[in-house]
Amino acid sequence: MSSPSLTLPSPAPAAARRRWLLEILGALAIAGTYVFLVLNQPADITGGPGSASALIALSGFLVGAILLIIAVLPSLPASTVVLIPVALVLNIVLGQFVGSTLVPFYLDAIGTVLIAVLAGPAAGAATGALSSIVWSFFNPTVLPFAAGAALIGCLAGLAARYGLFRRFYLAPVAGFATGIIGGVVSAPVAAFVFGGTSGVATGAIVSAFRSMGDTLLAAITKQALISDPMDKAIVFTVVAVLVYALPRRTRFQFPFVRRHRVLAGKTPGEGAGQDSTPAS
């Protein structure tokens, strides 16, 4: 019989319930804020400075993102927690670099999507939200986008969970779809908190739509629908290239990758009874 002093106890169900509650609350905060902003926008768009919408967008999205972090972070295994700072560095370095160029993309989610593919949607969402919060140490303007970044991470994880990374050509498609959703959700932040975009290239696109008579939110949403899907398609493709370049032992050390057969190729280990993978 093993002594309890060297082994871990079984996980308690109460902790899992608490986690679910916080996750749902976080998701509700984000969704509620978005709905409120979209419903109220016509009255508020030229409402002048210090608009209540800016405050609602800021606080609602931020509270939602923080609830998600509080829910997910303690439940992640240490191997994932240790990867998050690495992902954040990749996000920040690439995002800062690309943001300073005249390209209407961001490429600031490569690390987030990488974690999502290796460790699942919950880890991806936490990484996205943390990325915005930590990055705001150098660039506070990304702080309000925490909820959008969390959504990207979550969607990327779901795409991986349902096998969209098993075939190489599906990854950019999944990225494109993720970009549409992410862009639509992030647009109110840009519109209400900043009144525009943070880059010159994206600003030019918004300006073009505005001159055609769109409202600010509509113009920024359209701009996001031009930039974000392409951006996320590129990001997902880059991540697919990276994860397929990892050796098997490194890939399969992640339980999420093993359990859900995230990547093509012969999958070892438990639950591999139905090995009908096309490749190999």
Binding site: S2, S3, S5, L6, T7, L8, S10, E270, G271
Partner: peptide, 28 residues
């Protein structure tokens, strides 16, 4: 303290209810 591994069935097995594999607490 002796910990035996691999004699119990993995959790995935439906009829393997008898023994759970010990999980080492890395900190201890």
């Amino acid at each position: 303290t002796r910990l035996d591994f691999g004699s119990g069935r993995a959790g995935a097995d439906a009829n393997g209810q008898h023994r759970v594999e010990p999980r080492i607490d890395p900190a201890k």
